[in-house]
Design a protein around this nucleic acid. Structure first.
Lengths: 213, 213
DNA sequence: GGTCGGATCAGGGTGATCCCCGGTTGTCGG
DNA sequence: CCGACAACCGGGGATCACCCTGATCCGACC
């Protein structure tokens, strides 16, 4: 089964280079290409390719705009980001926008074809140096899922903690739990003391850091 | 350059299968193996391999424990998770713990060798069906990176907003920005009004939700 | 029966938060 | 020049957050 590829890059020469490279391979069928964001979005919506190879840095919003616009209407189309930049911000931004992979332009033709094929199959492809960034950033979203400190808290205190972390006032928590404001204060004080914190703001940060909300 | 591999799996048979598979390949040197968590952690710390192939489901905490314990003392050692399970929870948990890749046990010997080599090189390797989970989960950590509401705020208000979101009191913000507490109050009031919020706690939540901190 | 912890509530106090009103300065464009 | 706006500062007051002491009730445990 051939993979229908769409190319987006503001460099004509690079574009034709990729076209030439893919033309020799039976696996790929270059459905179309574009050199700016608006043309790309329109053409992709019309042609509905299997995968889009998109440059990151382009006038008019860059590859980010292309991915966001297209995925709104066609969430099934896959994106492989291609860039001269190996800056972590760029990589993270593209992945968060929905790109299924990210390779740098130093890549060889064979490798690019391999990356496209793998991405089309549902695999995730990153240039070696980039894979670390993505996984580090992802791992960083949850530092420690275990928490011996939470064991110090009674069930009721944990319940109050959750409510406070959500930003509710003492009064609101009291109503939700059908207890008095004074009881809420007692519980919050106990939690703050046990966790060595000093304010409900620190408490909220503490809770969101370990995803208790 | 050979890659020194350590194997962790509670199934002896599977373990010897992998050893046999890798023994034929010059690229790999199986530095050691273990069938439970404690032995694995001790041996890995002693041998310091380049990469650890670790089973996800094992008595004694599973691969998660191995990764967590080892990375505390040896953050440079890479991990490739290997499992019969393709459940999103397992995949996400392992990646968050620090695994550089995740493949299922349906994988062929050649593919496993390829995955190990790629992971050792710094690449990220996932079984095709799994890559989607990881990237979806990662993309899900940031729902809307655009924020039309932020445009309503003046630069100074945004600055104050960041400080408040970090949990600082008005007094602290005033000192940091070298302005009076009253001015901070004014800015905060403006921000709350413009963003249709009613307390600094909601504001903190609002800010952390869209990663402004 | 006594003791202990968990959960509930109250009074009283200090500081922080938030809103209302007011004001000054400076900049920018009509 | 004048209006609009951003940034700055103040008084006063209502409410909220946090801490302290002290209290009652209940169930578990020795």
């Amino acid at each position: 089964m051939t993979v229908r590829v769409f190319l987006v890059d503001d460099h004509e020469l690079f574009l034709s280079g990729v076209r030439g490279e893919l033309a020799d391979r039976d696996r790929f069928d270059v459905a179309g290409w574009a050199t700016d964001v608006d043309d790309a979005v329109a053409a992709i919506r019309r042609l509905v390719p299997d995968i889009v190879l998109v440059d990151v840095h382009m006038p008019g919003g860059g590859g980010l705009s292309v991915i966001r616009n297209v995925t709104e209407t066609h969430p099934d189309i896959r994106f492989l980001a291609l860039s001269v930049s190996d800056a972590p911000e760029d990589v993270i931004a593209m992945i968060r926008a929905g790109a299924r992979g990210y390779v740098t332009k130093t890549i060889a033709g064979d490798e690019l074809a391999d990356a496209l094929a793998r991405t089309a199959d549902g695999d995730a492809v990153f240039s070696p140096r980039l894979a670390g960034f993505v996984l580090d950033a992802f791992a960083g979203t949850l530092p420690q899922p275990d928490d011996p400190e939470l064991d110090q808290l009674t069930p009721r205190e944990r319940e109050v903690l959750r409510q406070i972390a959500r930003g509710h006032t003492y009064k609101q928590v009291a109503r939700r739990l059908s207890i008095s404001v004074k009881t809420v204060e007692t519980h919050v004080s106990a939690v703050l003391r046990k966790l060595q914190l000093s304010s409900r703001h620190e408490l909220a940060r503490w809770a969101t850091d370990r995803r208790i909300v």
